[in-house]
Amino acid sequence: MTASRILSIFFGAGLLRPAPGTWGSAAAVGVGLILHRIGHFPLLAVATVAITAIGFWACRRELAGKPGQDPSEIVIDEVAGQWIALLFPSFGFWYIGLESNNFPYPGWVAAFLLFRLFDVWKPWLVGRADARGDADGVMIDDLWAGLFAGVGTMVFAALAHLVIM
């Protein structure tokens, strides 16, 4: 098995059934929480940039000569998008000085659920990127979904804090 294949299926998460995209996102949350715990927001941010670059490379390699394909087992795009969504609460916790071993569950649960919503629903820019039909589109739609999910997570957090106050 090639390196691009191993990475594109995120070490086998993309082979799980049913719903490999959800499994890939769940694996991404687990690894993302570990990265946050080890090095807080800065490590998660660096890892997100790295996995995004690796994802573009792996998708281009795996989809070379296969225009319009987006095989369900390729989940490196979900990992990159999910980590973008996790960056938002991770930054908030880092900014306020919360210890890295503390990533309250509403933050990562909201990031996960909103990411899956936007990834499946594909509104606006997510859908436009998906419609490209090329390897970069496979990645870009999930990056947009991650951005929307991250913003949504922070909106929900702000609303929750307004209710608590």
Rank of each mutant, 00 (worst) to 15 (best):
I76Q: 14
A129H: 05
A131Y: 03
V138Q: 14
W23L: 02
G39S: 10
I74E: 02
I84K: 14
L114S: 08
I9R: 10
S90I: 01
M139N: 05
R132S: 01
W121A: 13
N102C: 00
L63S: 07
S25D: 03
V120A: 02
P106G: 09
L147N: 08
Q82G: 03
A27M: 13
W144F: 15
I54F: 09
S8I: 05
P104C: 12
F115V: 08
G133V: 10
G137D: 00
I38M: 07
H161T: 08
G133Q: 08
V46H: 03
V126F: 03
R60C: 04
W144G: 08
D70R: 11
V163L: 10
G21S: 14
Y95L: 14
R17C: 06
D130F: 07
A45F: 11
A3S: 11
A45R: 02
V31I: 12
P89S: 02
R37A: 11
A47R: 10
L143K: 02
L162K: 14
S100C: 08
A135T: 05
D119V: 07
W57G: 12
I84M: 01
R60P: 01
V29A: 00
G97L: 09
P104K: 10
A28R: 05
S25W: 13
W144M: 07
V46I: 09
L43T: 13
Y95M: 10
S100I: 01
V163T: 09
I54R: 00
L16E: 02
P89A: 00
I76H: 04
V31N: 12
P123N: 15
A111Y: 01
T153Y: 13
F156N: 06
Q82I: 10
I84C: 11
V31P: 02
A50M: 05
A129E: 03
D119P: 04
L87G: 05
R132K: 04
V49H: 08
G127Q: 06
R17Q: 14
T48M: 11
M139S: 00
M139D: 12
G14Y: 06
P123A: 15
E78Q: 14
V138S: 01
L44C: 09
F148Q: 04
H36E: 06
A19Y: 08
L33T: 04
H161C: 13
I54W: 15
